[in-house]
Design a protein around this nucleic acid. Structure first.
Length: 269
DNA sequence: ATATCCACCTGGCGGC
DNA sequence: TGCCGCCAGGTGGATA
């Protein structure tokens, strides 16, 4: 569910309700997500949220004493609900706010995480992260440099959060289709022009997905219960063996890094 | 150092 | 209806 556009959508969705709100209580129903939820998370109770932002696929809720670091894994989602709403299966944690709302994390597979750090961005999981794909830092000069010497498929490279953050399996497949680059191409052999096209395509795809509120495949919902609408624009993801929207050739698929990869052998060189 | 795999989980689907 | 195998939006860490 959650690549950059989905996390950003959630981030913007909860902001107006939670910014400047005091956290009254943090209730933990399941301690073990990907990692155990650290006890220091409770330091955040009775403190006020001063910023809500996204970094890569992490959502960062910062109060006067530290930052709650949320990751949604594969199946996680957040919901903004009236306090005391009946709990659903796989609701693991909730933040209760003074305005009567509570923010709940539901994650069937528990690949997600809730962590704490005193200083925002200094957490060891955040430090090695690469540039944001929609920032100016993510440009063809940077990409060419970053891919130098790495012998691996370009799709794996753009899903590597050290090279660039926020791109998961859906948007990697889609971006490479738009860029007309075969996902299996060796990343260090891309020309400067191809790097430029790839950068441009990534930005186009992510921006379009953001406008659409993300992609809903199974159960992704924004925190206000709205689905995303980007799935109607998917050109290759989930369409293996179906005709290419551009040329009609049946789309190829294989696995790269254990992830389904789909491309058009005719359009993507 | 770098590239490849596995592991962590639950749920939904297709096939028998 | 039921059971089985496979697949799924991610990624740290073990292994070669």
């Amino acid at each position: 569910m959650p690549e950059l556009p989905e996390v950003e959508t959630i981030c913007q969705g909860i902001k107006p309700f939670l910014l400047d709100q005091k956290i009254i209580q943090i209730n933990i129903f399941t301690k073990n997500l990907r990692w155990p939820i650290p006890d220091e998370i409770q330091l955040l109770t009775q403190t006020k949220i001063i910023s809500i932002q996204r970094r890569a696929k992490y959502l960062l809720l910062t109060t006067t004493v530290g930052t709650a670091i949320l990751h949604l894994g594969m199946s996680g989602y957040l919901q903004l609900l009236p306090h005391n709403t009946i709990r659903k299966k796989h609701d693991h944690v909730e933040f209760v706010f003074e305005n009567g709302f509570c923010l709940r994390l539901n994650d069937a597979r528990r690949f997600g995480a809730l962590l704490f750090h005193k200083t925002i961005f200094e957490h060891p999981l955040l430090k090695p992260l690469g540039p944001e794909p929609l920032s100016k830092n993510f440009n063809s000069h940077y990409l060419k440099q970053a891919l130098k010497g790495k012998v691996r498929a370009v799709k794996l490279a753009i899903m590597d959060q050290v090279i660039v953050v926020g791109i998961g399996n859906i948007y990697a497949n889609e971006s490479l289709f738009i860029a007309k680059i075969n996902p299996n191409r060796q990343s260090n052999l891309l020309s400067k022009i191809e790097c430029r096209n790839l950068i441009k395509s990534v930005k186009i795809v992510l921006e379009k997905a953001l406008q659409s509120g993300g992609t809903t495949l199974k159960d992704f919902k924004n925190s206000n219960g709205k689905p995303g609408y980007f799935q109607q624009y998917l050109k290759v993801y989930g369409r293996e063996q179906q005709p290419c929207v551009t040329c009609g050739t049946l789309l190829c698929s294989n696995r790269l890094g254990q992830r389904q990869t789909i491309w058009c052998n005719h359009c993507q060189i």
